[in-house]
Design a protein around this nucleic acid. Structure first.
Lengths: 273, 273
DNA sequence: TAGAACTACTGGTACGTACCGGTACGAGGC
DNA sequence: GCCTCGTACCGGTACGTACCAGTAGTTCTA
């Protein structure tokens, strides 16, 4: 193998260059699943890096589940390439990733004052201006979901002027306002669609749907977007790759429970059962 | 603040001790959301560690979203404590985390030969022995889901003798067989329950349910458990905290798409639409 | 007084060294 | 033939140094 020299002149850090290089080779099959990668010390020699830098590159791949390692043995490529694990995707990115073309039909767009529930979730004051955007979302022309997005107007003034049927909100936030969404809390449950939803989505008879709520956050923890969407139940499937965390968590003020949750089932109002 | 001395004698690595210490202080409110933590250099002095070790501790918290950092400014506690983010939870752990008591009623348990679909997903040969375990799962006595779990018998010989209504499969795998589940792929979609399911779960009329499939993996990528479950739609909600990944991914053999998916919506058989 | 320059501090990147305990394998002894 | 021990290598942990670019406050200058 001839390692292409990593370029210390370009802006991207060396460990990211190495990470992407290894990721590329794994994806291309240069390293097959369960095949051993060169040892950390050898990678360091090959690319003329220090072992610390190599470990920094491997750490990301390890964390993403792309590789796994065994003390005394070596580092291996994982069976499944969990590229997607734990990551967050907008509707457009999601559809694009499947090789389909996303289009959004704008149903309604306006500036409204926030009501209590929206305000508390978006960390603003009730009455503050909210960008409201309702869209019918399609993939290759097929209606997939109706979605209402709400954003604090203060964080993205004039957002509506940038909205069209193609660009995603995420990409506008990044390019125009330099706001990067890093995290989101998603919750979803099954339901029967209303008459309007069934019509709008051209759903078959029983009208089974997903109801999805997503609250997105910026790096510093500020809430940036609250979306409530209804997805077709007959053609949509939610999937995620989740990992067991090693962080301990305190519950009930005293008991330390290791391996705390997420990506789990929660109970919504256990009333009337 | 008087930093309790970290103990280099005990087996746990120093950086994990520091991580847990900081995590504890954040949870107890010693450091409030958006409050600045001591700088890396100061933490190193306080705990008599090297800056590299401090950074190793912070890296985990950063990755878990517990803290965020800004070059030139400092490191801050995140608004929301995303303890759970990206982690994986068994049914029992999930229910316990809500302060309820999980009980499982065993509906059927047996050793069966694997059929093709099961075998391919569990990475074994069709006909290999499979541990099959069907359970009705309850929280505080309320039926929540019917679940069928399938595990390669070779990886956990005699598993059925350890099964009871209380211990979780995950905990048995860990304690008896020293097998640790690290990752799982989850997919779910809404549906209407069958007559049997509606009866079994004492569901109200329309009988809306979640259908959940989960394939769990060990560290080295070996598949360990395939579960197919039906959850009540009226009291269950799926939730997860997902993060935008920085890994680039190659799709369609040429195009590089950054910010690739998971925790997204996928389309199941776009047939007949 | 407004703006530029300096300074002190921050996290990010990158380098080096060292030692530990686990793994694999071949040489030597029984 | 089997077991033990030494050796080489592996990843994991921990230490140190150095320099960079971004931030913020002060001080100096035009």
């Amino acid at each position: 193998m001839k390692p292409t020299r990593l370029d210390s002149e370009i802006s991207q850090p060396l460990y990211l260059q190495l990470r992407d290089k290894l990721l590329g080779m794994i994806h291309e099959g240069t390293y097959a699943p369960h095949e051993r990668l060169p040892s950390e010390r050898n990678l360091a020699k090959l690319y003329r890096l220090s072992r610390a830098t190599v470990r920094q590159a491997l750490a990301e791949l390890l964390q993403q589940g792309v590789i796994y390692s065994r003390v005394g043995k070596g580092t291996y490529v994982s069976e499944l390439h969990k590229w997607h694990q734990g990551s967050l995707l907008g509707f457009n990115e999601c559809v694009l990733a499947q090789g389909k073309i996303p289009i959004s039909e704008i149903l309604e767009s306006k500036i409204v004052p926030a009501i209590d529930e929206q305000a508390s979730r978006l960390q603003i004051i009730p009455g503050d201006e909210l960008v409201y955007l309702a869209r019918l979302r399609k993939a290759d022309g097929v209606p997939i979901a109706v979605e209402a997005a709400m954003l604090p107007h203060e964080l993205c003034p004039g957002l509506l002027t940038y909205i069209n049927g193609k660009a995603s909100i995420y990409s506008i936030l990044e390019t125009v306002y330099d706001l990067q969404v890093t995290t989101a809390e998603v919750s979803l449950f099954p339901d029967l669609g209303s008459k309007e939803e069934i019509m709008c989505l051209s759903l078959p008879k029983p009208g089974v749907v997903f109801r999805v709520e997503q609250l997105s956050f910026l790096r510093d923890g500020r809430a940036i977007e609250l979306t409530k969407a209804t997805y077709r139940g007959d053609v949509c499937e939610y999937y995620a790759t989740v990992q067991r965390s090693k962080l301990g968590v305190i519950t009930e003020d005293r008991e330390v429970v290791r391996e705390h949750p997420a990506g789990g089932m929660k109970y919504r109002e256990m009333l009337e059962i």
